[in-house]
Amino acid sequence: MAISFNQAFAGHDKMLEFRSERASVLANNIANADTPNYKARDISFDSMFNNEQSKLRLASDNDRHIQGNSTMGESSGLLYRNPSQPSLDGNTVDMQREQAEYAQNSMQFDTSFMFLDRKISGLKKALTGN
């Protein structure tokens, strides 16, 4: 019986990819906190999910069926953050919010990594019998 890693990891590997990408976006916001006219960006799981879902093609078994092409979700899922306190120089980075979001994302990354590690440990035990 073949092992499908896509099913075995239960999506935890994809969640790690999302958390890594979000950490990069948040770190970029923090690095540009003093850049005039810089617009803070963020990425949400919903936007990433909708972006990936829109790439799927629907199968049809009849030529008269409507084709499942979609133009939604063409962007990478990056969204602009609405500033709570706009700056005079046009920068929308709120340093306290960015640091809090980064810390929360870091904890969620650690949690996803722990789940993935447990999945892999379980697979090792199943394969070796220990």
Score class of each variant (00 low, 15 high):
G68C: 10
S75W: 02
A2T: 11
D13H: 03
F9G: 00
S20N: 09
R19P: 02
T71Q: 05
P83C: 09
T71R: 08
L26F: 01
L116E: 06
M48S: 05
F45Q: 07
R97T: 10
A59F: 12
S121G: 12
D94Q: 12
E21N: 07
F49S: 09
K119S: 03
S47Y: 01
N50D: 03
A23F: 05
Q85Y: 10
Q53M: 02
R57G: 15
Q99P: 01
T128N: 15
P86K: 09
R22D: 00
D34M: 06
E101G: 01
D61M: 12
L116K: 04
F9S: 09
G90K: 09
L78K: 05
M48E: 12
L56I: 02
S4L: 11
K124E: 10
L116W: 04
Y38W: 15
S4F: 06
S84R: 14
R57M: 10
Y38V: 12
Y80H: 12
F49K: 08
L56C: 08
L16Y: 06
M95F: 12
Q96T: 03
R81S: 05
A100M: 10
E21Q: 10
R64L: 12
D61Y: 14
S112N: 05
E21H: 13
Q104V: 13
S112T: 06
L78S: 02
G129Q: 03
V93C: 00
D42A: 06
D63N: 15
F18D: 01
Q53C: 00
G73K: 04
A33K: 07
